[in-house]
Amino acid sequence: MTQDLIRERQAMLAGMTPTLKAGSYHFCTTDAATVPASLLSRSLAIFREDKGTALILSSEDAQAHGFDLSMPMARIVLEVYSALDGVGLTAGVAGALADAGIPCNMVAAYHHDHVFVPEAMAQRAVEMLLAVQRDATSLPD
Rank of each mutant, 00 (worst) to 15 (best):
A62E: 13
V77L: 10
Y110I: 07
M71A: 12
D141S: 11
A54N: 14
L89Y: 03
I46M: 13
M12D: 09
A136L: 08
G95K: 01
Y81P: 08
Q123Y: 03
V87L: 12
Q123M: 06
T2P: 08
V126S: 11
G86K: 05
K51D: 14
E49G: 05
L130N: 13
T29F: 07
D85L: 08
Y81M: 09
H26S: 09
H112S: 03
R134M: 07
A108Q: 02
Q63K: 15
G101F: 03
D31P: 01
L20K: 13
S24W: 02
S82D: 15
I56Y: 07
L44W: 13
M16I: 05
T30W: 05
V107Y: 01
L130E: 15
L89M: 08
E119T: 08
L84I: 12
F27V: 15
A14E: 01
S41C: 08
L40M: 12
I6R: 09
L20Q: 14
R9G: 02
D50I: 12
H111A: 10
D31W: 02
P36S: 07
P140S: 11
D4F: 05
P140Q: 10
A45V: 11
G92F: 03
V93N: 05
A83I: 03
P18E: 09
F67I: 11
A45Y: 08
G66Y: 11
A22P: 03
D135Y: 03
L57A: 14
R134G: 02
L130R: 15
D99P: 00
D135A: 15
L55K: 13
F47G: 09
H112W: 02
L139A: 14
V93T: 04
M128L: 06
A122C: 07
Y81F: 14
L78V: 04
L129T: 05
C104H: 02
S38C: 09
L55W: 13
R7N: 01
K51W: 07
E49F: 04
T17M: 13
A125F: 08
M12I: 09
D61P: 04
A11L: 13
E49W: 04
T17P: 00
S41V: 14
P140K: 09
L44T: 11
D113V: 07
L13K: 02
Q10W: 05
A32F: 00
S82A: 15
Q123W: 01
G52R: 06
T29A: 13
I46F: 06
H111R: 03
A32M: 08
A131Q: 11
M73H: 00
A136M: 07
H26L: 12
K21T: 10
M1E: 08
A33T: 07
L5M: 09
A131V: 00
L13I: 07
A83C: 05
T30G: 07
L39G: 03
D99F: 00
C28M: 06
R48Q: 13
A74E: 02
D68C: 10
G95L: 02
V126A: 11
L5H: 02
A22S: 14
Q123D: 14
L40E: 12
S24F: 01
G15R: 01
D113N: 10
Y110A: 06
F67A: 10
E127R: 11
A32K: 12
T29E: 09
P140H: 11
A11D: 15
Q123P: 00
V115E: 05
D141P: 00
A109H: 02
P118E: 04
A83W: 02
L78M: 02
L129D: 06
A45C: 10
F67Q: 11
A136D: 08
S59V: 03
K21C: 12
